[in-house]
């Protein structure tokens, strides 16, 4: 097996404020190979964004990470500032939801990309860096790239801006791209284009992608494997097919059932469908007790009994479909009953 582009082992992230330390991510392990996309799915407080930031070592003040993160062979948690600077951009780059805040309003688009080139390799001349910017804008599908490099962020539409940010992130050909809700702020038609572009560039560059999203629709279009987080812990991990067709965690199944579908009413012969909602609201690890964080919202906890409240379940191996990779779920139930019983 080749070395993975990203390897995370037993990652814990904690916040300290007022002398109190609380974990927001606990015991997370991830392995991601080149050319593959892992979707990290979760809701508020699930720790999906903080995990992405921990990999980049971009944690907010007061947060600290333990465990092991290896990106393209480099230990990220023990790296010093100089090493980190080298890693960011060339080994790992990030695209955020809000493209406007990732760009400086005072610099034209070309300057952003050229800066990324020259930070990575100071021997590149300004002129050459600028030429790379034009090339890269052309590659991400921005029309008239030679003119576009001179335009400013506010002159671009949301979709074009996201393309420019992708150009900036990928200009140094990173081994790993972390995309944190890259299409959430965009219209559906533009969203589809951006996802297609990311997939295309990924194939071309052979890079690994960590796609952070709350939307199973986006995940279904772009992911190879899926990691479902709940309250800072791994709820389920598996291939896209296993996660969609035989979810083994009640939360995964519940999330799928709670997502409105375009063909919903065609299925039911014109009857209006009610969504199967999960009761309550997502919690964070801070508010979770010693048991399973999902237990208070879980329609199946009664079937297991007290164990769900007193003991946090560890990920265990679940059945996989043909050719699927590992499938793990952290639930005391060995088998989920039919979907309709999952949410109360």
């Amino acid at each position: 097996m080749p070395d993975p582009v990203l390897q995370v082992e037993d990652l814990c992230v904690s916040f300290t404020s007022g002398g109190v330390t609380a974990d927001v991510v606990r015991d997370l392990s991830v392995r991601l190979d080149g050319g593959r996309t892992l979707a990290v799915v979760g809701e508020s407080g699930s720790g999906k964004t903080i995990t992405g930031r921990a990999i980049m070592r971009l944690l907010p003040r007061g947060a600290s990470a333990r465990g092991r993160i290896v990106v393209a062979g480099r230990e990220m948690l023990s790296a010093d500032e100089r090493e980190l600077r080298r890693a960011r951009g060339s080994d790992v780059a990030m695209v955020f939801q809000d493209s406007m805040s990732a760009l400086s309003p005072y610099l034209d688009i070309g300057a952003h990309i050229a800066q990324a080139v020259r930070l990575h390799d100071p021997s590149v001349t300004r002129r050459a860096a600028r030429a790379r910017a034009v090339e890269m804008l052309d590659r991400v599908g921005i029309p008239e790239p030679a003119g576009a490099v001179r335009r400013f962020p506010h002159e671009f539409s949301g979709g074009m801006r996201q393309r420019a940010v992708i150009a900036m992130a990928l200009v140094n050909r990173p081994a790993l791209l972390i995309a944190d809700e890259p299409t959430t702020a965009l219209d559906v038609t533009v969203q589809a284009q951006i996802l297609a572009l990311l997939r295309e560039l990924q194939r071309e560059y052979g890079m690994a992608m960590l796609l952070i999203s709350h939307d199973f629709g986006v995940v279904g279009r772009a992911a190879d494997d899926v990691l479902v987080l709940y309250a800072g812990r791994q709820a389920e991990y598996g291939s896209l097919r296993d996660i969609f067709e035989q979810p083994a965690h009640p939360y995964t199944a519940g999330l799928r059932a709670a997502t409105p579908r375009l063909d919903a009413r065609l299925d039911t012969g014109g009857e209006r469908t009610r969504l199967r909602a999960i009761p309550g609201a997502p919690t964070s690890l801070r508010d979770a007790g010693p048991g399973c964080a999902f237990a208070p919202r879980c329609g199946l906890a009664d079937q297991v009994g007290e164990r769900c409240v007193v003991e946090a379940p560890l990920p265990t191996v679940r059945p996989t479909s043909e050719g699927g990779g590992p499938h793990l779920a952290a639930c005391h139930l060995d088998r989920l009953p039919a979907l309709k019983e999952v949410a109360r």
Binding site: G254, A258, T259, L275, A277, I278, A281, P282
Partner: peptide, 14 residues
């Protein structure tokens, strides 16, 4: 709203 909560509100409105 979060996905799991969105369904609750949609059902309420319906």
């Amino acid at each position: 709203l979060d996905v799991s909560v969105r369904a609750q509100i949609l059902n309420l409105l319906a």
